[in-house]
Design a protein around this nucleic acid. Sequence first.
DNA 1: AGTGAATTGAGAGTCGCTGTCAAAATCAAG
DNA 2: CTTGATTTTGACAGCGACTCTCAATTCACT
Lengths: 211, 211
Amino acid sequence: MTTMTALHPTSPADPPQLGLRERKKIKTREAIRTATYELIEEQGYDATTIEQIADRAEVSPSTVFRYFPTKEDIVLTDEYGPLLEEFRDRPADEPWQDSLRHITRRAIGLGLGEEPEITRLRCRLIAEVPAVRSRLMESMSAAGPLLAGAIAARTGRDPESLEVRVFTMSLIGGLMEIFPYWARTGFRDDPADLVDRALAVYDRGPGAENP
Amino acid sequence: MTTMTALHPTSPADPPQLGLRERKKIKTREAIRTATYELIEEQGYDATTIEQIADRAEVSPSTVFRYFPTKEDIVLTDEYGPLLEEFRDRPADEPWQDSLRHITRRAIGLGLGEEPEITRLRCRLIAEVPAVRSRLMESMSAAGPLLAGAIAARTGRDPESLEVRVFTMSLIGGLMEIFPYWARTGFRDDPADLVDRALAVYDRGPGAENP
DNA sequence: AGTGAATTGAGAGTCGCTGTCAAAATCAAG
DNA sequence: CTTGATTTTGACAGCGACTCTCAATTCACT
């Protein structure tokens, strides 16, 4: 025993380099999230209050706000940030459509990987709750300049130009519609196909032929 | 004197067919709006509360909410609704780009006609205050199905199809960027030109040539 | 163990917004 | 002009998201 503690001064066993504090933080974060999802499935989004969430997650309301800036952020994923840097690091000679398709698919796989039901609930909320949709739009818009920079670099234009900005926002607005569409059609389609079809619109316009 | 009152029982003079009630409603509505604009210019959007607005407009806070559903709606125009019906009533053989250009220009002229400074303040708020931008996005999205229907009719496709929905939302997202761009460049450009340049993106992509 | 730092909970407070209800203003008729 | 119905208004209470502060607890390191 003393040997072990001597060899591993701080980390006990499985989780390699994570203190008790960090592990607890992750646990409460998850607890808040699952409590929120449960309550929303039970009574809907608007009916669930922060106080209820805090009660079920066994934390105080203050703690909920310490972990998530707004109620909408609890249900939305925040893993999309790193993905955009991935977009920027793609080969410069690759057409932007391919880069976009690549990371969009990764984003979907990422969201779909963990818990399909949660992803579906999220989509439903994006489609039905204006506040959630607005918040998603806002965070995607925040990533706008980065996207604009990447597109500008590919097309050799000024990222501040009206054309690039308009195109970037049109991408964000258009691709966001995939979520509500997927939810509205009962999650029957393959999300990757939807991404392809959506991106095709930007190449061929809204009157594109069916496959 | 008695002759006049006999001839004009209720309506005194100028405004032809408008009761006292309607006239007062318009006046309080304007009072709330101008009070809001003044306060925002003085202390910024977030710092001005509904109570302050009500005080300066000399009404009660309840009345403010009776005239405008949200704080954001006070600063946003609501004249865009009728414009969309105008879009639907355009000749069916006209390309959708031309129809869109037409009503977008009318929208700009409408907002610009009355008070240029207010239009500029509005643009600045759209660019800077997330809540205002979100609200605008929401109301434009609400008009989405109508726009989708018109575009679908022009291109002979299902308005419920993914392609049309994505394209419609891309239009809304992209064209909305005109406001922030106009504000960011110090209102130096002619708004009509910006609309043309933005619409050109949907024809030729983000790499379009400069004139 | 004991010190220093981070995390938490409790409480009060602000603001947007919703509802109710009675008072006041306006309108229509006699 | 007075009466009675209708509409508009203001005062009030209340809810929920969110912020801030401060003391108590918990963890990390020696």
